[in-house]
Design a protein around this nucleic acid. Sequence first.
DNA 1: CCAACAAAGGCATACGTATGCAGCCACAGG
DNA 2: CCTGTGGCTGCATACGTATGCCTTTGTTGG
Lengths: 337, 337
Amino acid sequence: MARVTSFDIAALAGVSQPTVSRALSGNPAVSAETRARVFAAAEALNYKVDKNASNLRRQATRTLALLFFEDPAPGETQINPFFLSMLGAITKRCAVAGYDLLISFQQLSGNWHVDYEDARRADGLILLGYGNYLEYLPRLEQLVQQGTHFVRWGSLRPGQLGTTIGSDNLGGGLAATRHLIERGRRRIAFIGTANEGAPEFLDRCEGWRAAQAEAGLVADPALMRAANSSEEEGYAAARDLLAAGAAFDAIFCVSDLVAIGAMRALAEAGRHVPDDVAVVGFDDQPAASLTSPPLTTVAQDARHAGTVLVETLLDRLRGEIPSPQALPARLVVRGSS
Amino acid sequence: MARVTSFDIAALAGVSQPTVSRALSGNPAVSAETRARVFAAAEALNYKVDKNASNLRRQATRTLALLFFEDPAPGETQINPFFLSMLGAITKRCAVAGYDLLISFQQLSGNWHVDYEDARRADGLILLGYGNYLEYLPRLEQLVQQGTHFVRWGSLRPGQLGTTIGSDNLGGGLAATRHLIERGRRRIAFIGTANEGAPEFLDRCEGWRAAQAEAGLVADPALMRAANSSEEEGYAAARDLLAAGAAFDAIFCVSDLVAIGAMRALAEAGRHVPDDVAVVGFDDQPAASLTSPPLTTVAQDARHAGTVLVETLLDRLRGEIPSPQALPARLVVRGSS
DNA sequence: CCAACAAAGGCATACGTATGCAGCCACAGG
DNA sequence: CCTGTGGCTGCATACGTATGCCTTTGTTGG
């Protein structure tokens, strides 16, 4: 395991160490012949640049860090598969750009133990996941003060810190609710947490409200129930809705998981989907097409989102000031509506 | 963004740079009083160790790299949620141990383009994912020759390279098939690719065979169909089985996805689950409890698996030679059997 | 035939940290 | 009062690379 350094290959190629460095990095001041000798020697000794030394010298890491915020739910939380696809796209885009990716799962409730540390190990940060937005706002301010570059997956609002990329949640909520109205539904319930702590969900809720207003309908507060993005809460919320005795012929759910839970509650109560109640979810998770009936939902392109996140961050690192960007959310109609 | 170095905090604390280094790393040769001054100064200037410099000096990175092998299927493959839970557990265990985690998604078919170890970016490797085992065997040999430490998620076999951790696939296959036999099934089909390229699946198949042998039954080759871990292939395999006209009253599927596809084919053919045909899957993915009827399956504890992987790798790094380990696979009985 | 110039590569050094070694000081034992 | 010992800290240096600057060599024009 004797370390192969640039000196070794310099000796083999009969040149100096700096020449090796220049040759390998494509510096044009090196003659073609010398370059060839250097490459041959490097190949022969299986030489690889020591990134620690290289980064130290160049004062850059060529590494991005991904901070994933998990819901602080106790025990085994079911992580959203949406983010996994995103993760795949992110790693790929990083690899293509020659960046490494450092990943860290964060408990939002606990200490945000990375902040400065990761800011130093990486050239830029990608912030991802669900959780109370207000809770980590102070951290974002901190990052901005440090001059740390970061992009965030979330809901677009004016005057936000850093660059935010997110789905067109409002548009998705509009599309879903318009669809239900077109199908003749008039009493549309909404299940999902809608407050400033979860801006994505708030936007989807706003779409629900606006689509009804367009059609001359009134979004009935009595048909709203809170639920975070879990099946259990969706189930509980739907049961509560049923128990309250309110009349409704459709539910727009803030996520597929919630919708799946709601459908379970409906089935138990003997309500048929979609004849009695139509259900629409959000995300288009793999599980969405497995329910019976298959779930109508609003699809977000996770892989595209991941790619955009990385590209936006790289833009920032290059000194550009990329604008926030809303990615299309597309209605996928299946059997549940 | 002027860089804060250990010299800065040395100046502020009125000591030398080496003393700062020692104080921060907990070297007992530093007096408590000095240590306190150093910590105060570091806190005041928000100093964080430069890991590039530190790693370079110490010739160790305190970083692990995770190589995730994706199936080389074209387009948007549906990544197994099982691995996401595992990923979460891995990152957590790394954080606890003070290690960072680099992640890279690899196309098994393409070049293995990351050389974290060569580039001194990571102290050890975790290899994960599905794919043809035989295809990356040469790479493993390469790693061993370089003296690289790695652990692998896969199937345990005698004489394997590195340390392998995996589920008790044989035991899981046995449990699943015994369960079907106890339920009175006598003609049990198997859907799944069973060859040396996918050793996990081969083991599960062997469980299917052995359980029948125990009961004096014969595993009928006519009831076997190949399918990789996708719903589509499960669907196609089950259709093929039905078309062949073979009599069977149960199917043991190599994964939940395959089972879900198979159940779809059965439903289309008018076969009732579980009355006509019992179905058992493998993995206990979240989707497994959503099917109708809910899927009986063999659960693997992904989070535990991730933890064990990291701990095993850390053992290796400490110079121990950990044994391969098979983690329990537990039958979860639901409505499909 | 000499000066001017370009091309190519070597020399020296800096990046920030960790650690072997030596030095200093205080205190205790003789 | 001198020497030995141990606790603490400073000095010097090395990790491997990248780059500014200078030297060398070869070429060209006057």
